[in-house]
Design a protein around this nucleic acid. Structure first.
Lengths: 361, 361
DNA sequence: GCGATTGCTGGAACCGTATCCCATGGGTTA
DNA sequence: TAACCCATGGGATACGGTTCCAGCAATCGC
């Protein structure tokens, strides 16, 4: 019955429709619904009745245009089907929900161009923060672009959070939530070395990914600590998937046999490696030991259950959101010098059943 | 230098700022940016220069308020860490991106209340569609609520899509994208029966979930077809996780030993079951065969690789989005009677290495 | 009992963008 | 050369809320 639109229109009810039908002003309806201003019980009842009759919900776009609106976090993820990332996303999402925030998920598919497009899209959405998941690329140009993103978001009142990657260099307005990647790798390699292994096949991951680099250098450091020479011929880079684990072990068995353990960059890689070992007639851990990294559910579903490094992914997600929320509530300007913008969470080895002393001979 | 806001303000630039600085009207800037109206090359250049100087991006909220705006799909998922759901989400997200649509992910954590809250939240966002993932609950009240959601969304110009669950009863404005769940279970059970198994432990999943019900009835039908009596004592309901798989097998081994195969409701359940079998000193498939359902990556990472039912999850996601997009472009009113609103995708058995004929004796 | 508070309600000015409609100017045509 | 048309640019308004400000009644204080 409103005057401005044709009857029978399928469009959703507006606050004006509610006001009209309840015989009150638009302002009153708004106040009843947001509840941040005293309203008489009588008025509230009348309005709520109409709201429920009309099945009215406020228009979020209009609301955020006018200044109100729910804060939103955007989660940018390489691949939603990766278990580790999914856990971070779960952490962020859970913490966001707890605070009444909304969360948006976008996937980049490992494509830097798409990542760029998504960050801009999120900027348009006016999100409170953009959470970027996963290892960074070790290109100068990529790092520069990230710095630009950070400044750009910052200028728009938003904020960039990097999760699971090293912080940006220089004075960049971004928060980093990281884990002790290098330390985990050190501990994992030490575990193998102290069990007596000396010839270890290392599958760190993609050479250009910072994550893989840290894992490799952690292992390296462990070898040094044990005074064991590090054989570069036993390092094989490749993607973080089980196929790579399989083919790498297959190739190593042919080219550089004699290793007694496999240090995989990821649980998934370890799964592939395990298959290849088994296919070659080798038993795990009797003939060859094997360890992973990440401690995703898969690790304990394999047979034997995988010894691996636990990374607190979900916790990282929660921490990332908390960092953003704190900063947002902690007043307008960012407290410079506080430097609470680089958080590092601990990792630890989870011992299961995939490691045994090397066979002698 | 705008008059209306204090200098040094951190707020993002508006279209007015751009217009002012470029010495043109707001309307012109809008036209340059949306590109749906002829603009002189000179004007375009001037505007674009300022846009890049100011690092301006349009405000998505304002845009969608004014009628423009990017269509958005909301994906509601029980648990983002579930591999099957993640694949559907990936399918939806990919197809959405391809069309320039945005996608939003929310998780319900198996909580019907939260599901309700989320659907309302999405309604506020004015999403083009809400995609609900996963099995439904077999409560009358729950079904009624879904029907209300569907009508509510429909009235607001949005649309409900149910993925991986049976369609709603009655004339409800919702689209269903389903897979041949019962048929897959039938085929899987038949596979076991034709291998000679007669005493089969069945772990269909949670009794109140429609998904589990279909899988159970499919198995049942296969038993009938083979003229094999169905032993209800060998059916154990429980959640879709590996822990249930483990404890169920453990219990069955104690209470109803003698089964020669396990028909698990899910690959993850199968993984747990496999562990329990192994822990009891039984070999797979030599002593006991085992099959799963879903064909998530885990299935081929287990040892032995799991024979399972392939469900085209990612494809379902794509199909779901296409259905929404078609309907949206296909004119205002929904074509009644066309009934293209219930799509069923096929499933098939993937034979790997976890099934062997039963041991005799 | 009367003026001053207090408590609630309505009117109106935005929020940032898209678009309808009109004005203007140069070029084309009769 | 006059009349007209087409290509562009600008002004104004709508989108659906929130919130400041003013108004009015009821209540309070003395």
């Amino acid at each position: 019955m409103t005057q401005r639109k044709p009857p029978g229109d399928t469009a959703r009810a507006t606050i004006r429709d509610v006001a009209e039908q309840a015989g009150v002003s638009v302002a009153s309806v708004s106040r009843v619904l947001s509840g941040n201003y005293p309203v008489s019980e009588n008025l509230r009842r009348r309005v709520m009745k109409v709201v429920s009759d009309l099945d009215y919900v406020t228009n979020a776009h209009a609301r955020s245009l006018a200044g109100g609106g729910t804060p939103t976090v955007a989660i940018l993820i390489n691949n939603i089907t990766g278990a580790a990332f999914a856990h971070v996303a779960k952490g962020v999402e859970g913490a966001a929900t707890l605070r009444g925030w909304l969360s948006l998920v976008g996937t980049t598919g490992d494509d830097p161009e798409r990542e760029l497009a998504l960050v801009n899209l999120m900027r348009q959405q006016g999100v409170a923060a953009v959470v970027l998941l996963g290892g960074a690329y070790d290109y100068d140009e990529y790092q520069l672009r990230m710095a630009r993103f950070a400044r750009s978001l910052d200028a728009a009142g938003s904020h960039l959070v990097l999760v699971g990657r090293p912080p940006l260099e220089g004075d960049v307005p971004a928060t980093t939530v990281d884990y002790d990647n290098e330390g985990g790798a050190y501990a994992m390699a030490s575990h193998l070395l102290s069990a007596g292994h000396r010839r270890i096949l290392v599958l760190p991951g993609p050479a250009e990914l910072t994550t893989a680099q840290s894992r490799l250098s952690g292992a390296w450091r462990a070898f040094e600590a044990y005074g064991v020479p590090f054989d570069r011929g036993l390092v094989r880079h490749g993607p973080y998937d089980d196929e790579h684990g399989y083919t790498a072990v297959e190739a190593a068995l042919r080219v550089t046999p004699g290793f007694t353990a496999v240090l995989a960059g990821t649980d998934v890689v370890a799964a592939g490696a395990m298959q290849a070992l088994r296919a070659a007639g080798l038993r795990v851990p009797d003939d060859v030991s094997i360890v992973g990294y990440d401690d995703i559910p898969l690790a304990s579903q394999l047979t034997p259950q995988l010894t691996t490094v636990h990374v607190p992914y979900e916790e990282m997600g929660r921490v990332a959101l908390r960092a953003v929320a704190d900063r947002r509530e902690g007043g307008a300007g960012r407290r410079k010098g506080t430097d609470g913008d680089h958080l590092v969470l601990g990792t630890h080895v989870v011992v299961r059943h995939s490691v045994a002393p090397p066979r002698r001979g």
